[in-house]
């Protein structure tokens, strides 16, 4: 029984022992123990070529995505269509028969009017520029929030002292909704653009920060100990264990943060803005342009959906192991 396993290890093309002391020792011990036990035939045992390091190619990404099209997902997609369809149907019937039972559909534009609005205004420069400006604000605020929130969250989660220092401030700031920052933000920042980005940032920041902290705390301590035993320095521990280990929670934070960022952005644009989808919607109200109000609302919904969809997609590509985790991604 001993000799079969014995024969195997000698055969392995271990690393060059002169050049590198660490793996060399593996070889030295392994084969030295076997010298007597093995014949020359064993030393020729083939071992498959190491696999190529996978490169990210566009085709591969598409193939991966196509792999997600299954029966299960087709059902999911159909149900999604039905639920959205039902919403539209309710809206259509409500406006068609001008329903009045406490809520009043009297002034609500019909889906068709909104569609017409879209074809007229939809491709106009004004509308598209508003969208572009909103998206730019979101991206800026969200990226800054991620760039600060994730590293800060990791450090706060890991070190008791850092936590003691930052958490009181976080706990005081967190209940203040981003909209309440609007007046302060206008005073604080030199121009309108910066103050709106700041409000978006505030909205996204706390969900990202708190979920990252939670991610570090929920990381199994044995993994940290295992990494330490394997010689991980503090910085490598962060990059190779704490960050990937918290990644699922970080992505939860990003998704929630993105939602709050949109809420904050639209509110800020309505109050203080020039340009942006929120401003577009509010302006339509001031001008009594009802179809444009609904168009603005739908635009906000679609943009928010697209943003959280992108985050989900990046999460799936970045965390392939979650597909196998017990209870993961379901």
């Amino acid at each position: 029984m001993g000799s079969t396993a014995t024969a195997k290890i000698v055969a392995l093309p271990m690393v060059d022992k002169q050049a590198d002391p660490v793996p060399a020792a593996v070889e030295t011990k392994a084969s030295a123990a076997q010298v007597s036990a093995t014949g020359p035939a064993a030393t020729q045992m083939p071992i498959p070529e190491p696999e190529h390091i996978p490169t990210v190619s566009l085709t591969r990404v598409f193939v991966n995505l196509w792999g997600y099209v299954t029966r299960e997902r087709i059902i999911t997609a159909s149900l999604a269509c039905i639920s959205i369809g039902a919403l539209f149907l309710f809206w259509y019937l409500g406006t068609k028969y001008r329903l009045e039972f406490y809520i009043r559909f009297k002034n609500v534009p019909t889906p068709y009017e909104v569609y017409q609005q879209l074809t007229q205004v939809g491709l106009s420069n004004k509308y598209l520029v508003n969208i572009a400006i909103s998206v730019r604000r979101i991206l800026l605020g969200f990226m800054i929030a991620t760039a600060i929130g994730v590293p800060l969250g990791l450090v706060i989660g890991k070190y008791q002292r850092v936590r003691d220092f930052f958490m009181p401030v976080v706990e005081i700031m967190r209940p203040i909704p981003a909209i309440a920052w609007v007046p302060m933000s206008i005073m604080l920042w030199p121009n309108n653009e910066a103050s709106i980005v700041f409000i978006t940032f505030i909205g996204a920041f706390f969900p990202i920060l708190l979920n990252t902290i939670h991610g570090v705390h929920s990381l199994d301590g044995v993994l940290v100990r295992a990494a330490r035993c394997l010689g991980a320095s503090e910085i490598r521990l962060f990059l190779n264990v704490i960050l990937p280990g918290s990644l699922p929670h970080i992505f939860t934070g990003l998704a929630v943060g993105m939602g709050v960022a949109w809420v904050s952005l639209i509110a800020a644009e309505m109050i203080s803005g020039q340009f942006g989808v929120g401003y577009f919607t509010w302006e339509a109200y001031s001008l009594v342009d009802y179809p444009a109000i609904v168009l603005g609302m739908i635009t906000i919904g679609v943009l928010g959906l697209a943003c959280s969809g992108i985050i989900r997609m990046v999460g799936i590509l970045l965390m392939p192991w979650l597909a196998f985790a017990p209870g993961g991604r379901r």
Partner: peptide, 12 residues
């Protein structure tokens, strides 16, 4: 080198 060593150990 990591790759070679790891594969040898996994084989073991």
């Amino acid at each position: 080198k990591r790759n070679t060593t790891a594969r040898a150990l996994l084989d073991l």
